[in-house]
Design a protein around this nucleic acid. Structure first.
Lengths: 256, 256
DNA sequence: TTCTTTGCAAATGATTTGCACATGA
DNA sequence: TCATGTGCAAATCATTTGCAAAGAA
């Protein structure tokens, strides 16, 4: 497989009168040997450990070549970087993006694809392409959350009580509900409402949220959530009102 | 409706100990009176015509406020800008984005939504949100293409012959097929393979493609497209080989 | 009065580019 | 040979931020 890709790339270079160089070869090798969905910068960091004479620009340029040749495909997940996945010999698929560990799972669903075509047709729309990304928490991360169960709740003195947790945006925590803050979702320059990344915390809002004492691990108690307008909740001993838009960007874990 | 939004925003400001200012009021008015899916910069340009003392930063800051309060929602369509749509009183929806005119059509499909939940569950994935964007050509643009039919083909000397056009990426034009170049799809910094925008031409590749003489309106004839590897086609009198990845980014119109 | 806002200009940060030199075919 | 590739540093570009002056409650 790796060899197929390499000869396909060589053929591409040849057809475009471009040249194979040791830099290009090393970058391709590293791209192929690494887990998919890597950004140019991450790739550069790895390349750099093998050969620190290679510049960032070379890596960026190479990724464009791989994309032009359709050996790689560019994807973006709302955090302002471009990621590259292997495209050679693969068909269309959608992504499940874990906001906790950043893992990207490739999925495909025939029913969704068909229904998308119908939907486009219904609107007189001539489809060229589409993208579907899911943001949430993967099975592994959901599992490990159980392990790092917060101390406040470890009160079982006997018997085997399995507690099931539910992960949701703070904006969906109902009045009276208690939950633990897990994660903030990306915002700022490359934000994407509803969509999420674990790469950076909010930029413009980080300070605002953190000033309020809302930090990962904190317990929150929802005082008032009418499903509309700002939500009112308690952290430590203070009451906080927060716009629904911001509250949607705070992921909490609730006992279910 | 407009009044509802405005009082909701006033309530939000109050709940957050923020203040109403003439700047904020003007920006909100203009946002509400304009078509949805506007970027901060576009909005600033309009605001600027009404009051040129208002700075860009104020507009950017206001859009964050509208997003924090959930009155607006941020969306991005792969061109590196953030767009804002009215969110107040609206539910989840997906977007059909026309690569020709840039129009964004909001759509919703119950079957797709249900299937998405099933798909996530099947992969043990706890869904927080998702986004689904379609890129293609809207009915109106498809219609107006017929009107601006290229001269080369206007040879009907009698009778009413209706010609139906089909729009597709060059990479999908079969060997022997002829088509007219319509559009290049976005790339560069904020590119998105498969996904598309009409805002900018390719940056890094524009020169390469244009040097080759490929321009909107040009007739191309596919010489060899095996469905894999580079495609070979003719423009004017020269033969050109192009990587499949790049060829996917050239939208052509074929007689069908 | 006392925070909050604002406009301006400078800073960000991922990515691209100009340039002079180096190198593959 | 000689067009193409490379590293470096400077340039982009949408967006954010620091700051001193101005304004709302």
């Amino acid at each position: 497989m790796t060899d197929d890709v390499k000869s396909a790339f060589a053929a591409y270079l040849h057809s475009e009168n471009l040249k194979m160089t040791p830099q290009r070869e090393l970058i391709l090798d590293i791209f192929l040997s690494n887990s998919n969905h890597i950004s140019s910068e991450e790739l550069y960091n790895i390349v750099n450990t093998k050969d620190n004479s290679i510049g960032q620009a070379t890596v960026y340029r190479m990724m464009k070549l791989l994309s032009d040749s359709a050996i790689a495909r560019e994807c973006e997940f709302g955090d302002g970087r471009l990621y590259y996945e292997l495209n050679f010999g693969k068909g269309h698929h959608d992504h499940l993006v874990c906001v906790k560990c950043g893992r990207k799972i490739e999925v495909y669903d025939e029913i969704i694809e068909k229904q998308q075509d119908l939907l486009a047709k219904k609107h007189g729309f001539k489809l060229i392409s589409h993208r579907l990304d899911f943001f949430g928490i993967c099975g592994d991360c959901a599992m490990s959350e159980k392990t790092t169960r917060p101390q406040e709740e470890v009160n079982s003195n006997s018997g085997a009580v399995e507690t099931v947790y539910e992960t949701l945006p703070l904006s969906k925590l109902e009045s009276g509900g208690r939950a633990v803050v897990m994660e903030f979702i990306l915002d700022g320059k490359h934000g994407l409402s509803g969509a999420i990344s674990n790469r950076k915390l909010l930029t413009s809002h980080r300070s605002r949220i953190q000033e309020l004492g809302i930090r990962a691990g904190k317990m929150v108690e929802m005082l008032n959530n009418k499903g509309r307008g700002p939500v009112m909740f308690k952290v430590d001993d203070s009451r906080i009102a927060l716009g629904r838009g911001l509250a949607m960007k705070i992921i909490v874990r609730k006992e279910g």
